[in-house]
Computed example of a mutant assay.
Amino acid sequence: MRILLIKTSSLGDLIHTFPAISDAVTQMPNIVFDWVVEESFTEIPTWHPSVHTVIPIAMRRWRNSLLSISLKHEVSLCVQQIRKQNYDLIIDAQGLIKSALFTYLAKGNSVGLDWHSAREPLASMLYKQCHVVPHNLHAVERIRQLFAKALKYTIPKTPAKYGLQLPFALTNGISNNLVRKDHTPYLVFIPATTWPSKHWPVLYWVNLIKMATSYNYQVFIPWYSPKEQQLAESILNQAQAGTILPRQSLTDLAKWLVNAAGVVGVDTGLVHIASALEVPVISLYGPTSSKLTGTLGVAQRILNANFPCAPCRRKVCNYHLQSVVQPACFNDITPILVWNSLQKLIKY
Rank of each mutant, 00 (worst) to 15 (best):
H116F: 11
P327C: 12
L146P: 09
L203C: 11
N237E: 14
I82G: 01
N172T: 14
S234R: 12
G242T: 02
K347S: 11
V298N: 14
F220S: 09
I6Q: 06
D34M: 11
A261D: 00
T243E: 09
N30Y: 06
V281N: 11
D182T: 10
K161H: 09
F33Y: 12
N237A: 12
L257W: 03
S68K: 08
T295S: 11
Y285C: 06
C312D: 04
A93W: 04
N304C: 11
H272E: 09
V188S: 05
R314P: 00
S65A: 14
C329Y: 12
P201Q: 04
R247P: 00
A118M: 10
L137F: 03
L146S: 10
V271A: 07
F330T: 03
V258T: 14
E43D: 15
P335K: 04
D92T: 07
P196W: 03
S40R: 15
I15Q: 09
T334M: 00
K291Y: 09
S124G: 07
I190W: 10
D13N: 10
A254P: 00
Q27N: 08
A212E: 00
W256F: 07
N177V: 03
T46V: 06
S22L: 06
T171G: 00
T17R: 10
T26F: 06
I273K: 09
T53N: 13
L105A: 07
F147V: 03
R63W: 13
L101P: 00
L250V: 03
R2P: 01
V188R: 05
